[in-house]
Structure formats: C-alpha cells, structure tokens
Design a protein around this nucleic acid. Sequence first.
DNA 1: CATGAATGAGCCTTCATTCAT
DNA 2: CATGAATGAAGGCTCATTCAT
Lengths: 211, 211, 211, 211
Amino acid sequence: MTELQHASTDCTQTRSRLLEAARVVFSQHGFQRATVREICALADANVAAVNYHFGSKEELFSQALNFNRLKALQAASIDPDINPEARLRLFVRDFMLILLDEQHASSQCRMMARELADPTPVLDKIVHEAIAPLHAFVGRLLGQIVIAPIEEATLKRYVYSLFGQCLFYRNSHPVLQRLNPDLSYDIAQIEAIAQHISDFTLAALNAKIPD
Amino acid sequence: MTELQHASTDCTQTRSRLLEAARVVFSQHGFQRATVREICALADANVAAVNYHFGSKEELFSQALNFNRLKALQAASIDPDINPEARLRLFVRDFMLILLDEQHASSQCRMMARELADPTPVLDKIVHEAIAPLHAFVGRLLGQIVIAPIEEATLKRYVYSLFGQCLFYRNSHPVLQRLNPDLSYDIAQIEAIAQHISDFTLAALNAKIPD
Amino acid sequence: MTELQHASTDCTQTRSRLLEAARVVFSQHGFQRATVREICALADANVAAVNYHFGSKEELFSQALNFNRLKALQAASIDPDINPEARLRLFVRDFMLILLDEQHASSQCRMMARELADPTPVLDKIVHEAIAPLHAFVGRLLGQIVIAPIEEATLKRYVYSLFGQCLFYRNSHPVLQRLNPDLSYDIAQIEAIAQHISDFTLAALNAKIPD
Amino acid sequence: MTELQHASTDCTQTRSRLLEAARVVFSQHGFQRATVREICALADANVAAVNYHFGSKEELFSQALNFNRLKALQAASIDPDINPEARLRLFVRDFMLILLDEQHASSQCRMMARELADPTPVLDKIVHEAIAPLHAFVGRLLGQIVIAPIEEATLKRYVYSLFGQCLFYRNSHPVLQRLNPDLSYDIAQIEAIAQHISDFTLAALNAKIPD
DNA sequence: CATGAATGAGCCTTCATTCAT
DNA sequence: CATGAATGAAGGCTCATTCAT
C-alpha cells in the first residue's frame, strides 16, 4: 500500500503525492473502483485534497496519466543507424518493460490498460495523445520490415497482432497468475517474453514476403 | 451449480429472465458498473429478485457465465480427419465469431473478457472451468503443428501469442472504435480478421521449424 | 422538532411522514438550509428514504408543496350571494389564517413564502399552479369592487398592494418578532390583522371611485 | 464597529474590495448561497482573506451592511417646510428607488430584504440599527397625516401596510418576473409604483378620518 | 414464492475555516 | 500583512442488500 510513499519524487508536495498515489490506486482498481478516499489515504492527504488540487476525481485521473515514457519509447527506437528489425526488437523490449515491470513507475501504462476495459471520457484523451501515435509509429516500423507493398488495412492488422501479443501479458495477467501460480516478472523473464514476441512477429512478417 | 436445472423451463420464469438480462448488462457495463437495478428492470423483475434467487450480485454473475459455447468450440475443432492447420483455422474463426459477433448470444464470452480486466472472486471459476481447458486445447493443437519438439514454456508462449491476437480485438475494442470511428464487425470482416490471425500465426509457427 | 410526528395523517407510511417532515423543515429553514438528513430524522426514516421515494431533495420539495388549501380558499370566497366587499373580507381573513396560523398545516404556504426569497427551479411550478390563479382571482374580485373601469396595470397594482400587506406579516415575521418581542398570533389577532388589511384596502379602493 | 475606519482609504485595499464584493454577492444570492470563494474571486483576493480581515463570513456580512443610505432617506424627508403628505410621497419614492433601482449601490438594502427571509444572527443588528428607526420614523410621519388620535397598535398597522406594499415589489420580485416575463424597473416605472403606493396609502388614511 | 419498502455503508463533492509560511 | 495550501465536517446521492408481508 505504501509502496510509493516517500519515493523519489518531491513528496513534500501534496499534489505530487496525490498523483503518485492515484497512479497506484487507479492501476490497481481501475477508475470506477478506486476511491478518492483510498488515494488520499495513501497520499497521506485530506479527502478534500483531490478536489482542491484537481477539481474532480476524473481530472485527477486524467492528469495522473503521463505519456512521457511512451513518447520516450518511440524516440529511442527511431535511430536510423539500426536496421528496422533490430529497432522492432528494441521497441518490443522497452514496451514490455514498461508494461510489466512492477518496480518502476509504469503504473500509468497499467492505468491505460485498465481504462481500455472500462472506458471513461478520459479514454478519448488517451487514444488521441498516446495510442494513436504509437500505432502510427509501429505501423511505419513494420512497413519498413515488410518490404513488399501491402495494403493499409493489412498493415494495420500486423500492428494489431503485435500489440495484441504484447498487451496480452498485461490484460490477461490475472488469468496467467491463476494458470501459473508462481508467476512473477523479473527483467530476465520480461526480456525473454519480448524476444519471443519479436521472433514470432518477425517470422510471420518475413514468411509473408514470398507470398 | 444449479445453472442448468431450469434450462428447460419457460423463459418467462423470473430466474431465467434474470440470467439472460444479467448476461446482457454485465457484458455491456462490466461487473462493477452494472447495477442490480438495471438487470432487474431489463428482466422485468423486482429489485430484490437478484438477491432472492441468487443471494448476491456476484453469485448471479457467476451463474450467468455459461461456457457451453466455448466447450462446443473445442468439440468442433477436434475432428481428427482434418489436418491440424485447418483445425486451427476453424478454431480461430469460431473463436472470433464468438468474441466479436454482437448479433448472437455470445455475451457470456464478452463478460469473461471484461472480467479479466476487473477481477472478482469469480475469476477463479472462469479460469478453472473455461480458460485453462481452452489453453490446454490450443496448446495441444499448436503442438501438432510445430512438429519439432519444443519446450513446454515455448509452447505456452505460442498459445499466448495466438490468444493475444484474438483477444486484442475485444479488449481494445473501445480504442479501435476511436481509431476507426466507422468500425463495425460483420461476419465477413470477422472472417477476414480470423484469417489474418491464422495466417500470421501459422507463418510464425512454420518459420520456426527450420530453427 | 417533533411537532408533527405521528400527527393526523397516515404516519405508518414513511412516504407520508417524509412529506410532513419536509414541510416542517423546509418552512423552517428554506430549501437550501434544510437537509435531507434532518427531514429523515424528523420522519424517523433512513437517509436514503428521500431518494428512494422522491428521487431527489428537489422533487421532495416540489411534492411537499400542496396548493389544495389555496384552491379551497378561492372556492370559499366565490359565493355569488355575498357582495364583493364581504367576499374580499372573507378572502383576506382566510388567507391570513393560512399564512399565520402556526397550529394548522399551513407549512406549505410558509414554504412558498420562503421560496420567494430564495428561488429554486420549483418556483416556476408554484407561480404557475398557485400564485397566478390567486392573482387572477383577486384581480377579478377587486375589479368588482372598483366599479369604475380601470386599466389592467392599475388593477394589478391594487392586487399587489393587497398581497403586499398580507405577505408582510409572514415575510417580515422575523423582523416583527424582534420589534415586538412578545408577538404571537392567536386567532383573534389574526382576525384583527385581516380586518385592518380589508379596511385599509377597501378604504383606498372606495376613495378612488370619485377620481 | 470598525466599518468606517478604512472608509477614506483607497478602494484598492483588499478590505474595501471585499466589502464591496460582499454587497454584490450577498444581494444576489443571499447569505446562505453566497460563497466566500465567489466574494474573494470578485474582490480579486485570496480565499483566506475574508477570515483574515473579518474573522468569519457572518461578520463580513454584518460589516457589509451599510445603513447610511437609509439614514439619508429619513433626513431628506424630514424637512418641516413640506406638508406631511408630500413628505410621505418623497419618502416612498426614495425608498422604492433604493429597493428597486438595480443600477445604483442599493445592494445593502437588497441584502437586508433577503435577510428577512433567511434570518441569521445579524438580523438583530439590522432590526436595531435600521428597521426600528425606519418604522419609528414612518410611524411619526403617518401620525401627522392621520390627524385624529389613534391607538399605537393601529398606527403600527398603517406602517406595516405601507412597508408591506413597498417591500412586496422586492420580496416577490422572482414571482413578478415570472408573472410578467418582460418586467424591468426603470426610473419612470419605479416612480409610477411609488405614486401608486402613496395614492393608495393616503386614500386609505384619509378615508379613515371620518371614522 | 415474490415483492415493495427500507436500510446503511459508502461515494464524490462543497465549503468555511485554519495553518504554515 | 497576506496567502496558497490544506482541513474536517457535512451535503446529496447511489447501490447492494435486507426486511416484513
């Protein structure tokens, strides 16, 4: 519960603590189930603090979302000196690290993943600011790998196949935990998963070329 | 437990109507957002009916789940006269129809999909009765396609890659709707999606063989 | 506080008790200051009872208004066998009894008086259903007294002068109480006030005739 | 108590701006509905300013009341060279201008009018400092018009009849607005109203003499 | 067997006030 | 002298559940 309390950020500021606590609680319970009371308790703040600083639970949710890491992700995989396949492997690895690494501040991404299953008005913002650019970026990347000209619709399905594989590990995490009770993601395992997804995807893409 | 006791009785029975209404409402709003009042209103029953017949909202949810269609799915794809690849294509097609076809009574499966993102104690039942067998089934099927002996862990990842691709279209439906505002699934489109997933997966599996 | 509890109405019904309590509390504190909690406490009901029975505080307020007495008032003063001046005296007397008699169920009228100073959306209903007809009625009555033809606007001002005098005793009651600390309205006093208002008004109206 | 201490200082002083803003907001919304936040926002001051300068919302309200205009009113109508009836007409005219003229700084009086319907402890001050003297003044004035000796109680009722007519236009303003949607008070209309009230009252008073 | 009525815990939010600087 | 930040009490309302019939 107090995992992020007094963490690296400037915790003397109630506002920052609220944002941090919100990410934890929202990513655990989703927007609906999360209560401002729990967030405030975790942030060691008064119940009224959320409304004072953000005006509403929804605005807090919206501001707790932080797409910086996702944007940095794209920047890192954009180096033109690396060939497209290697860039894809880099991207998938970083993406999975963000999605699965419980230790780091990836709760924003988990919040997003939750949001997908239980949309609130904030989803529009998420899609517009984070997901659409990400899909566009991955679309360009895959387009460079599949040299043969392909239809836009087909390219989209490749993108979906890639994201589907990646997101599965997050979205179906509760299921996987029950199927494999001793499941836990350390960095080595995350990298192995990322490598599998990259292998699988590249194999499918390359196999398509002769067609 | 008693879910099939009344299966044969007239659907005018309150109990049956509640189950049917529950499937509709739960699959629309998820467990949390769905309200007992809405279910009862749709079933034309009293607010107290849910607790009277099922004891709790959660138990209603649990009993509203119905895995028959998923079980039938496996049965259909098990014909030994068909080669494994064709069986996989059949399975994916039927699975996607269940997941995406809004016209038919596949709301149970949509309920399950929602549940994954918002686990309740009922998830244990779902995993045990429906998902675990399904994963095992698909695991055996993929194992027949990848002739070369592979590790159990690797096979699992193949299964995850397949389900990840399939579930993406349901889990990320709100996102896809926003990315493609005129999105809608008719049977032709569902079959095209299924074919893509099958192609993609088989290409990846076959490419692996030389390794 | 419990002045009306278990009064004459069917108090076994929570709904009725809520309406009764609402009239008491609303007329004491006005719409804003009145709290559903206090109303429910007075009605010996649960806090949720208001929302269960009426949906909202405002709808409770709206339904607590009851114009029957005002309507009866007009009916009583409409007897054609009595001359207009006597009918006016009757009307003023009955009106003042409703306005000032604390013993009887005139809290609706006090509620209305409060509403005037602190309008809520419900005021539209009050004006339309109760006040407009009342003004029209009194307008006709005064029109019969002032035989000479007068303009519509002038007639309205007569109506306002009459109602102004009557309502003063209710609206300015807190002031009058402080000016005359031992103020209290028994029936004799109310009748004396009514007689003064009638005298004053009729004198003014009659004095006008020669003009 | 200290209300005039800063009277001479520049109105840019926070304190003065708060008083001015308070008059505007209180007269618009009444004591209850007015919020400290709105007053501070209008005065371009901090939320804490009210409590800092005045200790409480109620004390701000109390100090925002300013009876100078009412006192000036009496002074103006006290000229012994004018006959009592004319003085009454002057008084009523000026009083109605204060009550109804939205353009001028008569918000204090509107504040008082609101207060009557929603008493706070401040009402004691209002009654003692403003209303009681006003009633006394009008009582003397009417006493001079009704030459015949009358009882104190009767004189009081005349005063009430006069004030009732005047205040009606303010207290029932929300109602009148709804009855006459295109209602608005310009100076000509206010003077017409004042004339009607004076005519009506004087007619009644004079008619009484023969009694 | 079923229900209309009622409940109580909990939700988000508002607001006058206080605190630390 | 003044303020931005924070507080706690209270508000209306929702909802799954229970009760009495």
